[in-house]
Design a binder for these strands. Structure first.
Length: 482
RNA sequence: GGCCCAAUGGUCAAGCGGUUAAGACACGGCCCUUUCACGGCUGUAACCCGGGUUCGAUUCCCGGUUGGGUCACCA
């Protein structure tokens, strides 16, 4: 049988990391077996609907390469794929259940339900609905309906026995039916609840694997009972442990934690984020850590899913991100880096490609760039203490004499490029009989005005150009002469 | 509180009755080196507790502890 999974987000405004990971696993479960990945928008809660949220979903899937086979934007034979466009369907099925005696109308007001809860809080019984409306006669129901009284439709749960279901990651789980509430299927506004719409849609769309967060584990028995009430086969359940911010809190936008789009805005690479979250709760049978999407499809095995929550470790993502940057094709890397380079460098005489090349092995995120390259534009104010470096065996005196010595030889260079600069400086070192660092460290310092810089003396001199390099060295001499 | 679930270094995470308990991140050290990085080598660090079962438990079972989830006309 063809495997079909669905990503069923609510359009509430952004893409959680946890949501994206769920989508990824859904995609992989399907694609690793040649199945279909479906997108369905669950917008039954009109109060939480956020304008533009659906576009974020489309964009994220597109950006990450999690291409869906069916969905609102591309259609498919099981449409519509937006729940609000499927309204009639749910009511029909709810009515079917009423006829079968598996569900019933409930005319209780919210106030009455509230008061029930209050009673329960003081007592020791469960906060379950008291089935006040279960005993209504057909006539009473009809009268209420004719009077246009607002109603909901509730599922009638068995009061005895147990319900058992199997979860692919958690195994067999059993609960007492007495724990189950007569959950609402159709709300007073005529919309189905998530729990009901889900079952109907998953069945109608032939979904074979229901993948979702473990917070749904405790409501899954109700799902199973619903499938049973209809006489349908339940799908495979794949519940996923949460992605945590720390040992106690889930990662969530509400706590100010980064969403997918935030991470991208912070200079993380899409592929690195995807790779990292693939490994947050799943591991391959071998030790492989770096995966392209295609490799994930090939290597993914549902058995590698973990049962326990994982803490999102930005440090490891950052490391992985730097690995992606380092190993990226230069042209691709440059196209990503260029905007950030331009943020830090306004001077058009600077060869951005050379700067980019210097940076590629030193970046953690793209956003590090501006702060690392700003000195190319303008030499920052610096203290002559920068010239003192123990390991390079430099002092201010040595720095001064080294800088003075290199001015004439650099001035003599006509063909200003890295190789020539290198040879010239190294010759000078030999001539003066000093250590490399005693010349090169002062030059690097004079050129950058910073304790650290991407690239050393030769690279910086090459990029800055002859005139500017000499100007900066003179400036160093001036500072050191005071 | 009832019910459900989980528990290996600081973090991710192998392991599935017998192992010197992998690997990665982070951290420390060393090497390389014109700074910082990169790279290479290396070090510190873990089976929540108590009972069983077994010749033998990190692994299986039962309790407990801790943590999480759930108990909505939200998904």
């Amino acid at each position: 049988m063809e495997i079909r999974t669905r990503f069923a987000p609510s359009p509430t405004g952004y893409m959680h990391i946890g949501n994206l990971r769920t989508a990824l696993y859904e995609y992989l479960i399907a694609k690793s077996k040649g199945g279909k990945f479906i997108l369905r928008i669950e917008d039954t809660d009109q109060e939480r609907y956020v304008e533009g949220a659906v576009d974020i979903i489309y964009n994220t899937l597109k950006l990450t390469g999690l291409k869906h086979d069916e969905g609102p934007d591309i259609g498919g034979e099981y449409g519509p794929y937006i729940q609000s466009e499927r309204m009639g369907i749910y009511m029909d099925y709810a009515l079917q259940l009423i006829e079968k005696g598996e569900a019933y109308y409930c005319f209780c007001t919210k106030e009455r339900l509230e008061s029930l809860k209050e009673k329960n809080e003081s007592g020791d019984s469960f906060a379950h609905y008291d089935r006040h409306c279960l005993g209504l006669s057909k006539e009473e129901i009809q009268t209420n309906l004719d009077a246009k009284m607002p109603f909901v439709i509730r599922q009638k749960m068995p009061t005895e026995g147990t319900t058992t279901f199997d979860d692919v990651v958690y195994g067999s789980i059993t609960v007492d039916n007495s724990e189950l509430d007569d959950q609402i299927l159709i709300k007073a506004d005529g919309m189905p609840t998530y729990n009901f719409a889900n079952v109907i849609d998953d069945h109608l769309m032939n979904i074979t694997h229901v993948v979702r967060g473990s917070e749904y584990l405790s409501s899954t028995p109700k799902y199973n009972l619903l499938y049973k009430a209809f006489g349908w086969n339940a799908p495979e359940y794949v519940h996923l442990p949460p992605v945590m911010k720390d040992a106690h809190h889930k990662l969530s936008k509400r706590n100010g934690d980064a969403s997918f789009e935030d991470l991208i805005a912070k200079g993380y690479i899409v592929e690195a984020v995807l790779n990292y979250i693939a490994l947050l709760g799943w591991s391959p049978s071998d030790n492989q850590e770096f995966f392209t999407l295609d490799e994930l499809i090939e290597k993914f095995d549902i058995a590698g899913l973990s049962k326990s929550p994982s803490i999102f470790d930005i440090q490891k993502l950052t490391w992985m991100n730097s690995e992606y940057i380092k190993n990226m094709d230069f042209e691709k890397y440059f196209s990503l880096a260029e905007p950030k380079l331009k943020e830090g460098i306004k001077n058009e005489n600077i060869d951005l490609k050379k700067v980019a090349a210097l940076l590629q092995k030193r970046l953690e995120t793209l956003n590090d760039i501006p702060g690392l390259v700003d000195f190319f534009d303008e030499l920052p104010e610096y203290s002559t203490e920068l010239y003192i470096h123990k390991k390079m065996k430099t002092t201010e005196e040595i720095a001064l004499s080294s800088l003075k010595a290199c001015v004439p030889v650099l001035e003599n260079i006509t063909d200003w490029n890295e190789t020539v600069i290198h040879d010239t400086l190294m010759n000078l070192v030999t001539e003066l009989g000093i250590k490399n660092g005693q010349l090169l460290w002062p030059v690097r310092t004079a050129l950058s005005g910073k304790p650290t810089s991407p690239g050393g003396a030769m690279e910086l001199a090459d990029i800055l150009g002859k005139e500017e390099s000499l100007r900066r060295i003179e400036k160093g001499i001036e500072l050191l002469s005071k």
